[in-house]
Write a protein that binds this DNA or RNA. Structure first.
Lengths: 241, 241
DNA sequence: AGGATCAAACTGTGATCTCACTTTAGCTAA
DNA sequence: TTAGCTAAAGTGAGATCACAGTTTGATCCT
């Protein structure tokens, strides 16, 4: 039955991306990598969606060479995986065990980063975090998933960056790269917004009071709740493995 | 003064690597990546050593194309970094703060993995771990750094793999990739072998008793001691940043 | 002897082409 | 209608080439 009306414009991830605006001092490859990485984190691509070298090159306005390196990098980060006998690259479809694997890494590292962030927190950054939290709340009220996800990443990364640990920040970003395509399906879960915003409010409170352990606990709760929603939604997750 | 006799054959990392033995079903790029990654973990390359695309291609017996992708992947993993205005790839020279950054990630993740490994431990694996520990002790007695480092990674990875968490294992491997070039300098520290083997023995004991927290504590102590030796050795570390 | 200069030899980057393979669409035949 | 075959289009992998930039080293002049 009319599936195309149920998902009116099931756009692929490319529709939101334009050709590359070449900035000097940066290689094409680096810009393509950053663009696609952020797009994956923001959930522009769905799990299982295939990424073609030539099509990506056409969209970015370059040859396949820099695209290939960028995609290979993303594969190395776990943001893409080789799929069939044709070695096609696609957005990973996670198994339930992989999801738990990632969840526990996040609990360990983001909890640690949050705790470390307390000492490096400045008023200006705290204000930015508060803004992101407000925008998230507004997006939740309006049901705007795009705006919500964008500010969700912004909220979390602003906290972790205060820990001033670039390597840790990179590993955390890699974990978000893996769950990014899934989180968009998680926000459709009932009560997700409510529970998530409750954790975020608790985190913001702890942040303002300089309470590291409380902040850590709030972040851990947020991660656990999100993983629960993902497990129950069963979209983009394979149960077999 | 005759510096060349002080370091008689300061071999670069390529001297231990041969041309690629093409296995079917694997891409050249994947084999080059795996080869170079393991070489970096084992400390074949020194911090600051430069990696040339064409030279690497000549050693591996391929064109620059697959080499470039492999090196780009390693850069993304943090195993290589772009250096000068010429964008030369080299083995990273870590700052003291980066070293602490990596140390704490390792403490969190490897400690967690060790704790999780208890339930997945099998007698056959336990025997392999015991063997690696014996070989490490023998290498320490003989002062064979190569053999020691090889079995050190083997010892740790055998433990963590028992946790059956591929993503976690990948992140841990990335951390070893970053400290691999440094660890070779750490083993020259006085008492490093003694302290390290004491931690390893404690880990093995905890493993045989199925004591997760004790295993976790032993692993954490090992990581902390190694980081201390690296900080005091000051080789391949910049103090400025 | 010391410093400036210029050319040669390197560096990575990106585009293009060929190849082997897979997938798919369409046609043919049972 | 359906099964099977075939040709076309698509896939990534790898080699090669051209280019811009840097580094290096020798030469020349002071």
């Amino acid at each position: 039955m009319n599936e195309e009306s149920a998902t009116p414009a099931l756009q692929d991830g490319w529709s939101r991306l334009g050709p590359l605006a070449l900035r000097e001092g940066q290689t094409s490859q680096a810009q393509i990598y950053a663009t696609l990485r952020d797009a994956l984190i923001s959930g522009y691509f769905r799990p299982g969606e295939e990424i073609s070298l030539r099509r990506a090159a056409a969209v970015m306005g370059t040859s396949v060479t820099p695209v290939r390196e960028a995609l290979r990098q993303l594969e190395s980060d776990g943001g893409l995986e080789v799929f069939g006998g044709n070695r096609v690259l696609r957005v990973p479809v996670l198994s339930a065990s992989e999801l738990l694997d990632i969840r526990d890494i996040r609990i360990n590292l983001e909890g640690f980063a949050a705790n470390q962030a307390i000492s490096g927190m400045r008023p200006s950054r705290l204000r930015l975090i508060g803004n992101a939290c407000q925008l998230m709340q507004r997006a939740a009220d309006a049901g705007d998933a795009d705006m919500y996800l964008e500010n969700n990443w912004r909220f979390h990364s602003l906290i972790y960056e205060a820990a001033q640990r670039p390597v840790l920040m990179g590993v955390i970003r890699d974990m978000w790269l893996r769950v990014g395509p899934l989180i968009r399906t998680a926000v459709t879960a009932p009560l997700h917004f409510d529970r998530s915003m409750a954790s975020h409010d608790a985190a913001l409170r702890a942040l303002r009071q300089g309470d590291g352990p409380a902040l850590q606990a709030a972040i851990i709760r947020d991660i656990g709740d999100a993983a629960d929603d993902l497990m129950t939604s069963e979209q983009g997750i394979t149960r077999t493995a």
